[in-house]
Design a protein around this nucleic acid. Sequence first.
DNA 1: CGTACGGTTGATACATATCAATATGCGTGG
DNA 2: CCACGCATATTGATATGTATCAACCGTACG
Lengths: 236, 236
Amino acid sequence: MPPVAAALTQKAYVHPPMPGVVPGNWQDDVAARRPIDVLAALGVVTTFERNSEIFGEDAPADHIFMVLSGAVRVCKLLGDGRRQIENFCLAGDVFGWETAPRHRFSAEAVNECRVVRIKRSIVFARAADDAELAHALWELTAGELSRAQNHLLVLGRKTAQERVATFLLDMAVRSTGGAAEVTLPMSRQDIADYLGLTIETVSRTLTHLEETSVIALPSSRRVLLKDGSALRGLNS
Amino acid sequence: MPPVAAALTQKAYVHPPMPGVVPGNWQDDVAARRPIDVLAALGVVTTFERNSEIFGEDAPADHIFMVLSGAVRVCKLLGDGRRQIENFCLAGDVFGWETAPRHRFSAEAVNECRVVRIKRSIVFARAADDAELAHALWELTAGELSRAQNHLLVLGRKTAQERVATFLLDMAVRSTGGAAEVTLPMSRQDIADYLGLTIETVSRTLTHLEETSVIALPSSRRVLLKDGSALRGLNS
DNA sequence: CGTACGGTTGATACATATCAATATGCGTGG
DNA sequence: CCACGCATATTGATATGTATCAACCGTACG
């Protein structure tokens, strides 16, 4: 049964093995499986194409989501179109999990991505008699909070260079576990809206970091972190 | 038994009735009592004087706290002294509640304040067989997250005027339930560090709002919200 | 009454935004 | 395979909002 049909019938669709990086060897490595991964097995897999909306701000929050592959941006808009990206979700990240009955932000596919959608009612039902799951769900929210608080420091008090350095280090850790090369899935505009800057400032800052040999840019989306300690110096 | 003695013996101290605004008529109105208030009754009440540290960044997170009266600022510092205040906690607010074994920020008394300190181990023990409490604790974290995310939008994308307007409206709602007059417990420096601005910009912005009759400033700490819709216009 | 601290106001500097032009990469169709 | 067109990214010139540096004011308090 294809995912879409499964979605229509509201029945769980257990998707086939996937290529690409998936946390804990998705559905294979039982030992590494997180409680949320077990839950995700009950969900419906959907593919979203680049820039498509997964849910809108204020939409009913009937589902929670987990990224399987690709990247998702979670954002808020101001009346005049100014946008703040709260977070980029990569493989294994959960989004749309909240207490309110409506989403407080929108979620869009940064690039083509696969997402598992789990009914919120199922999550609550299971959490009611599974303390471990309930705890994991709390930790999920707490982890989000921690990241948001670090981001507050970035947006409130860091310079453009420091913001970009922090971003690159963070992306390196999250997408590759800390390798010296990152392929950014998102555009300069997305980065700018995440860091509270303009696209031009992001571009200039990257160019400047390249000129000072802190990074290299083989292509606009590929970044080599040549001088990690310099980046970390800008991070503190 | 005075609070300090109670702290030393690690026994719960049930404090006497207090003056001042306390959520749900603290320990009186059983119907309005939140799960966290019930928990707080097991805690130790401590008074902190203006600017004293309640806990430091990276300190062991052995307790969680609830404000009874006064205000607390929760903040992070950068290596060179730049400070970002994540949140101001007013009466009824909980702080220091997290998953990690160490606090990820410091907490200081904005003015003289009374705080209940509850042992984290007690919180966990109770939450283990009290699903309602566990749910309330999750909602607490989720509420924090929601506020942090709104704050991200403020710091990332709003102008100084918009930041100050948002702050004033928020303080009015949180400290008085939305009255047209607020008495700010914190200094201009605290406001600046909360809004990602400088003290001078905060001052100038308030002066400008006063000159345009949006607010009045009978004294530097007292603010009259004269034109709520103008403020709300700056808020969106 | 003077001192100290917090707050305001002024002059200027600077980081980043804005406006504008150019460049690069990429998919499409000839 | 190349040429075209579009989207994305870079670079340049200039504007502007906020920071910085500095002086001054007012209120609380010894």
